[in-house]
Write a protein that binds this DNA or RNA. Structure first.
Lengths: 202, 202, 202, 202
DNA sequence: AATGAATGAGGGTTCATTCAT
DNA sequence: TATGAATGAACCCTCATTCAT
C-alpha cells in the first residue's frame, strides 16, 4: 500500500513528523532534560496537548527519534551488505554513510551523540536493541572478511566491531562538540585507513 | 598528624570525598537528572544542606566528579609518557590504565560514559578543557611515534588520536551497558593489536 | 454577554481577580513574607501552578494589589479635582475617599499600611511612581488653593502635601493596628479641621 | 554603678551593641526578611552562633532595635515635657528631636520607617506598647495646651496627636525613600507652622 | 563566652500531563 | 483531531538555629 516505504516515514501523519523534527531542533538546542514539551510544541506549531496525541510522553519522543533514525541506518547498512561484495568496501561504505548521515544534520547528531546518552535508562534500552543490531551488522562484515581472508583471523571480531563503531562515534562526537566547523564526511578515509592498516609503520 | 584536615590526604575534607563518592553511586543508579540531591546526601550520611557547604549546586557535583577523575587520569598519563620510552609501549600503557580505571569502578564508569554526556552544556564545557588535554596527550605520543618511525607518517595524528580514544571509550561504554559481566582490562590487548596492525590481513 | 472574559468588566480574567482578592486576605492574615503562595492558591480555589499563569511571582502579586488600588485611587482623585471647584472641598473629598476606601476593607488596609511597607525594595519602587502621583495630586490642590487665596501662600506646598498624606496615612495605620473597632471615615472631619485651622487657639 | 546611664545602653555587653548596630546597617541595606543572621554576624565581626548568645532569635534583634530607640525617644520626650513650660514649645521640641534623631542616622530611619512595618505581628506588638506611649506623650501635651488655652479645645486630642505623629512620620518616610538628599531637621519648622496654624489663609 | 560546621524544615517555582471544550 | 488553561507533584536550595568543641 505505502507507495515507497523508504520515503514513508510518512505512513505517519504529517504532524508526527513535524513534532519529531521540532524535537530534534529543540533537544539539540536545550538538551533533552532542559527542553520543555511546550517548546517542542511551539517549534512544531501545534498546541501542547497535541504532542500527546502522537507520543505517549516526553521520553517517547526521544525514543522515537532514535528508533526512526536507527531504522533507516540499519536498513541502509543491510542494503550495503547485499549490494557490495568486498568486505573492505562494505566497511568503507558503512563508515561513509554513518559520517554522512550525521554530518548532514548537526541537530540530529547532537541528539544522537549527546542527548541520547542522557541516562542508563535510555542507553540500556537502546543498546539492547538497535545499537546491538548495528554492531551485529558490522561484526558480520568483519567475520565475513576473516573468512574471505582479507581481515586477520586472529582478531576478536567482537572487539573489532566495537572499535570500528567507537572510532566513528568518536569522530561524530568530536565534530558535534568542536567549535571549529569542518566537513565530517571527509574524515572517513583517514579513519578507514587507520582501521585497515593500523598505526604501525611497515 | 594532619592538623588541618583540609590539607591532608586528598587535600579535601573528609565529607567532600564522602559526598563525591555517594554522588557517583547515586548518579550511576538513577541518572544525574533523575537523582535528587537529597538522595546523595542520604547516601553520604549527611544532611541535605551539608552538600551545599562543599558544592555550589547539583551541577557542580557532577563537574567535580569529572574534574577529579580527569585530573588523576591526565597525571597518570603524563607519568607514563615520561617513564616509558617506546611510543608503542606508551599507548599500550595508556589504554591499559584507561580500561583499568573504569573497569575497577563500574559506578564511576557509568557516570563517565553516560551521565556526563547528558547535555551539550556539560559536554562542551568538558571537551574544551580536560578531554582536549587527554586527547592532546595521546596525539603527542602518536606524533612522537611518527617521528621515531614506528607509526606511519602518512596518518593524520588528529584523527588517529580520536580513533584511539574512541576505541577505548566505546569499549567502556559497551562494558557499562552490557548485561554480561566480563573483565574490561583484558580487552586492552585486542584493542591495541587492532589499533597497531589494522584489520587487514598480511 | 461578554464574549471574551478577558475583556469584560475589569478587563482581567475572572481568576486574576480571584487570586488577587485571595492574596489580600492571606497577606493581611499572615503577612506577606510569612504567607505561602500555596495559601493564596487554596484561598482562591485554584491550583498552586495557576497562580503563575496570572502573576510572574509572589512579589508581583503584591505589586499588583498596589497598582490596581492606586490606579483607582488616583482616578477617583482626578475626578474629584475636576468635579469640584473649591480647593478646600477638594481636600475634604480626597480625605473622605481615602478613609472610606481603606475603612471599607480592613484586609486591603492591612496590606497597604503594613505589608506594602515591607522592604525598601518595594517602597522605593512604589514611591517612585504611584505614591508620587498621589502626592502630586494633593500638592496641586494646595498650590491651587494658595493661588486662589484660601490657603496661606507662605506654606511650603511640598511639606503641606506630605503632612496631609501623613495625617491620613497615620489615621489608617492606627485604625488597622487598633484593637478597638471604630469607624474610620468619621474621623475625616477632625483631621480636616485640624489640617485647615491648626491647633492654635484663636 | 553604671557611670552614665544615658550613655550606657552599655549596661549591655560590648558585643550586644556591636550586633545591634550591625543589624541596623544590614537590615537597612537588605531588608529584614532578606537579611541573613549570618550577614549580621559578619558585619558585627562575630561568629553566627554568637548572635544567639545575645538575642533569642532573629525577630528579637529587630524588636531590640525598636525597644532601645523608643526607650531613648520617650525618655527624651519626657525630659522635654518637664524642662519646658509652653505646650507649643514642647511640641516644637518633640518634632525637632524626632526629625533630628532620624535625620542623623539614615540606616536607623530605614529600619524604623520600613522594616519595622514589615508585618502586623511586629506592628501590633509595637503599637500596643512603645508607640502608644509616644502617642500618649504627645496627647498629654495637646491636652495640656487645651487646658492652658493655647490649643483649640474643640479639637479631638486623640486625632490631633495622631495627625502630629503622622505628619512627622511621613516626613521621615519620604526622606528615607527620596532619592534627593536634603536635611530632614530643617523641615521641622514648616511642619510645626502648618500644624499650629493650619493651611487656611487668615 | 565564642565558634562555625552541620542541620533539616520549608517554600517558591517549574513543567509534564490532562481534559473540558 | 486539536486546543491550551489548569493541574499539582516534585525538587533544589536557603538559612535560622543548634551544639560539640
Amino acid at each position: 500500500m505505502a507507495r515507497d516505504p523508504k520515503l514513508s516515514a510518512s505512513r505517519k501523519p504529517e504532524k508526527y513528523d513535524a513534532i519529531l523534527r521540532a524535537a530534534i531542533r529543540v533537544f539539540a538546542r536545550n538538551g533533552f532534560f532542559n527542553a520543555k514539551v511546550a517548546d517542542v510544541a511551539k517549534e512544531a506549531g501545534v498546541a501542547d496537548g497535541t504532542v500527546y496525541l502522537y507520543f505517549k510522553n516526553k521520553d517517547h519522543i526521544l525514543v522515537s527519534i532514535f528508533e526512526e533514525t536507527m531504522h533507516e541506518s540499519i536498513s541502509e547498512g543491510r542494503e550495503v551488505i547485499h549490494s557490495i561484495d568486498d568486505p573492505r568496501e562494505k566497511l568503507k561504505r558503512i563508515a561513509a554513510l554513518h559520517l554522512e548521515r550525521m554530518g548532514a544534520d548537526r541537530d540530529l547528531a547532537v541528539v544522537f551523540q549527546v542527548e541520547l546518552r542522557s541516562s542508563t535508562k535510555f542507553m540500556e534500552q537502546f543498546s539492547e536493541t538497535r545499537v546491538s543490531e548495528y554492531l551485529d551488522l558490522i561484526r558480520s562484515v568483519i567475520l565475513e572478511g576473516q573468512r574471505a581472508g582479507c581481515f586477520r583471523p586472529s582478531l576478536d571480531a567482537n572487539v573489532a566491531s566495537k572499535v570500528f563503531f567507537g572510532a566513528l562515534d568518536e569522530m561524530v562526537t568530536n565534530w558535534v562538540l568542536s567549535r571549529k566547523s569542518y566537513d565530517l564526511r571527509s574524515t572517513a578515509d583517514s579513519v578507514i585507513d587507520l582501521y585497515f592498516n593500523g598505526v604501525t609503520a611497515a
